[in-house]
Simulated scan of single mutants.
Amino acid sequence: MNGIVRSEWTKVRSLRSVLLTVALTVVCAVVFGVLISSGQAREYGTLSAADRAAFDPTYVSLIGSFVFAQLAIGALGVLSVTSEYATGTIRPTLAAVPYRGRLLGAKAIVLGAAAFGVANVAVFAAYLSGQPTLSGLDAPSSTLDDPHVLRAVLGAGWWLTAVALLGVGVGMIVRSTAGAFTVVVASTLLIPLIGGLLPAWFARWWPTSAGQQIMRVMRDPEALSPWAGITWMYVAVAGVLLLGYVSLRFRDA
């Protein structure tokens, strides 16, 4: 297994698109985190008393992570699989590693570890640049020492890591970069956006929406708790990876 993991790490590093998606993840999280923080801070003075009481400065700085940065890190997960199908190198890979469960496991380990590192750099950078933006415009801000703030920032990294692993599973099922990326975007961005038009239980239980609660300091009483939400998201991602294994096991390369 160690040899398979090293091989997968070599393949991931050799993808030219990896550095681009890594850079985009960090840049999108920081740039849009600052822009959204600035916009929310300017609107703070016009909010009602109830909306001011519910204002969550930590969540505001992290919004860019799950609206924009997730697109880049989801693409990273997809490309780690579909690039092999696009070039045909999946055939020699399967010849060298006939145990397909180990192959998928190695891909998930390598991509998950890489995504976890990138995600944490992105979310901490977004938070540490977003809070001065809020305070500089006379809006409430937070520090990592405040209750639940560190959990929320770390949770944003866990959420982005789950999105990357989702990309691995979907890529293994769909095997097309465009098709798999479309599924990831729809499941993490488009469907949650229309959640307000659907029954309340849908937004509560849709995995990526439930997982986002880990980023909130001010809890939504109608949503799952932060830990329950992120756990449910990882369970759903594990289910997608299982379907990816079934596809890898019983479909020809």
Results as ranks from 00 to 15, higher is better:
4 I>D: 08
5 V>N: 02
6 R>K: 15
8 E>I: 05
8 E>V: 01
9 W>S: 12
10 T>L: 15
17 S>D: 09
18 V>H: 06
21 T>M: 14
21 T>A: 12
22 V>Q: 02
33 G>Y: 08
35 L>D: 05
38 S>R: 13
39 G>P: 13
42 R>N: 14
43 E>A: 15
44 Y>K: 09
48 S>E: 04
52 R>M: 12
54 A>L: 08
56 D>Y: 10
58 T>N: 03
59 Y>H: 14
60 V>P: 04
61 S>D: 11
68 F>T: 04
68 F>L: 15
68 F>I: 12
68 F>D: 06
69 A>I: 07
69 A>Y: 04
70 Q>W: 10
71 L>P: 12
71 L>Q: 14
72 A>V: 10
72 A>F: 08
75 A>M: 13
80 S>W: 02
82 T>F: 02
83 S>F: 00
88 G>W: 08
89 T>E: 11
89 T>M: 10
90 I>K: 04
95 A>P: 05
95 A>L: 15
97 V>R: 04
101 G>R: 07
103 L>K: 06
106 A>Q: 03
109 I>V: 15
109 I>S: 09
111 L>N: 13
113 A>D: 05
114 A>E: 11
115 A>T: 07
117 G>D: 09
119 A>R: 00
121 V>R: 01
122 A>L: 11
122 A>K: 13
122 A>M: 10
123 V>Q: 02
130 G>P: 04
130 G>L: 06
135 S>N: 11
139 A>T: 03
143 T>R: 11
144 L>Q: 07
150 L>S: 09
154 L>M: 06
155 G>F: 00
155 G>P: 07
155 G>Y: 03
156 A>D: 07
158 W>S: 07
159 W>P: 03
159 W>V: 10
161 T>W: 01
161 T>Q: 10
164 A>G: 05
166 L>C: 08
166 L>Q: 08
167 G>K: 03
170 V>I: 15
171 G>R: 00
172 M>W: 05
173 I>N: 02
174 V>N: 02
175 R>F: 08
176 S>N: 14
179 G>R: 06
183 V>K: 00
186 A>S: 08
187 S>E: 03
189 L>E: 03
189 L>S: 04
189 L>N: 04
195 G>E: 00
198 L>C: 03
199 P>A: 00
199 P>I: 02
201 W>G: 04
203 A>P: 04
207 P>W: 00
212 Q>L: 15
213 Q>R: 01
216 R>M: 13
217 V>P: 00
218 M>Q: 15
219 R>K: 12
220 D>N: 13
225 S>V: 02
225 S>K: 06
229 G>S: 11
231 T>H: 01
232 W>A: 10
235 V>N: 05
236 A>S: 06
238 A>I: 10
239 G>Y: 06
240 V>T: 02
240 V>M: 00
242 L>Q: 05
243 L>G: 14
244 G>C: 08
249 R>I: 10
249 R>K: 14
